[in-house]
Amino acid sequence: MDLILFGIFAVVAVLCAINVVVQTHPISSAISLVGVMGSLAVLYLLLGAEFIAAAQVIVYAGAIMVLFVFVIMLLNAGTEGKKGRSLMVQLLGAPLLVAFLGLTCYFVQRLFPQADEVHFGGFTGGTAKAIGEALFTTYLLPFEVTSVLILIAIIGAIVLARKEMD
């Protein structure tokens, strides 16, 4: 059952990710990316990360990607032309990428041969309570720093948006 669920959502995630890369219109890419995020949320549930799964859908799919779709609609961005990137990227990009992927997969197989098998319910420490406790004890300083970071981002976005109004 777990393997079937993993298989379904892994295939959906990979297909949507391929769609993100090959679609020529940005809005199709954006919707495919939402598909990737949704399937990843299901995989997080399988790994016992219930809070992160909900945050993934609320923050990533529900807020960040809506912002992307909003900007694409606002700019009325059209489809991309056929002209490719620079020659070096076209020649070296694909082989290097495949080499990188092969190497990563090799190391994953090599380093985790006898690791735990994942089954649903094998780890139940991902509740909102556990995350909240860790956030306000061990990770208090990073948490406060990210809040400052968000404040900076808000001010930066306002400054950038205000400049074009004048």
Binding site: A54, V57, A63, T127, A128
Partner: peptide, 14 residues
């Protein structure tokens, strides 16, 4: 669900 409220928020944000 343990995350019932978050589920409602997530679905409504989609």
């Amino acid at each position: 669900l343990n995350i019932g409220v978050l589920f409602v928020l997530a679905v409504s944000s989609m």
